[in-house]
């Protein structure tokens, strides 16, 4: 069967780069084809019909023409511009963090519909709770799961025995949690408190909108972030650049409320 020259798809725009005088290179994530890179001719001109439709963190209906190396955007129509993300800096910076991870973990010509749905679910969650980091932690854990890289949270990666409350440690490159018996083997590794382990299991079992309000103090938030970021950056093999701006915003913002809720829907 011949391959169609043009195709239509719904896509989440992750980022774009200027290309030449007025063109744009758009990187987006689609349900059917995974990550797609496409050029948009003259999209940087104010008079372009594409302008405004290809901004990062926009869900668009795209019509694409297949090219030898890169596809070309023929038409674009915004399906959802996530206004809740656009109107507040904390939400916007968290949305960009999601976009960067999706760009890093997504691969071209390798569809992962679960990852696509997850990203949309998390962006909606960030819109509901713009100051909360819980949607980001949920995204990191589920991103690892849909990529087949979920860290072990229920049994020790060394002795394979079910975990009982104790002084556990976490090893991103070892695949997850080490029990208190095997922990001395990895004494230099990051400790994983029972509280953190419980929240990680909750994030793994529940959908984001169903997670009840949690009281997450600063220490627990830090431990959750450090544990998941270590895993994500281990598999990504590089630092997540947008996290530096998020950290900067957290430092320059008055103390956040202790209660994190992802379920206001």
């Amino acid at each position: 069967m011949p391959v169609l020259k043009t195709y239509r798809t719904e896509a989440l725009v992750l980022k774009n780069h200027p290309l030449g005088e007025a063109d744009l290179l758009v990187v987006c994530y689609t349900r059917e084809s995974g990550k797609v890179r496409a050029t948009a001719r003259a999209a940087r001109k104010v008079s372009s019909r594409l302008v405004g439709h290809l901004e990062p963190l926009t869900l668009v209906n795209l019509s694409l023409t297949r090219g030898r190396t890169l596809d070309q955007v023929a038409q674009a129509q915004v399906a959802d511009s996530f206004p809740a993300l656009r109107n507040a800096l904390p939400a916007l910076s968290r949305g960009l963090y999601v976009a960067e991870l999706l760009d890093g973990f997504g691969s071209e010509a390798s569809p992962n519909p679960e990852l696509y749905s997850l990203a949309l679910e998390v962006l909606a969650g960030i819109g509901r709770s713009p100051e909360s980091d819980l949607p980001l932690r949920y995204f990191e854990l589920r991103l690892l799961e849909t990529s087949g890289l979920l860290p072990e949270l229920y049994q020790c990666v060394e002795c394979r025995k079910p975990l009982v409350p104790g002084d556990h440690r976490f090893t991103p490159n070892g695949g997850g949690t080490l029990c208190s018996q095997c922990a001395p083997l990895g004494a230099h590794l990051r400790p994983l408190s029972v509280r953190t382990l419980k929240v990680l299991r909750l994030l793994h079992r529940q959908r984001l909108a169903e997670i009840p309000s949690l009281t997450i103090d600063h220490q627990l938030a830090q431990e959750l972030k450090a544990t998941l970021t270590a895993s994500v950056e281990h598999w990504l093999d590089q630092q997540v650049r947008s996290s530096a701006f998020l950290d900067h915003l957290r430092r320059t913002t008055p103390a956040e409320p202790a209660t994190e809720s992802a379920a206001h829907a």
Partner: peptide
């Protein structure tokens, strides 16, 4: 909307 722009092709954020 830019001068010379048409409503039909404007994105929803610009229009709102």
């Amino acid at each position: 909307l830019p001068v010379g722009g048409s409503l039909e092709y404007a994105d929803e954020l610009t229009l709102s």
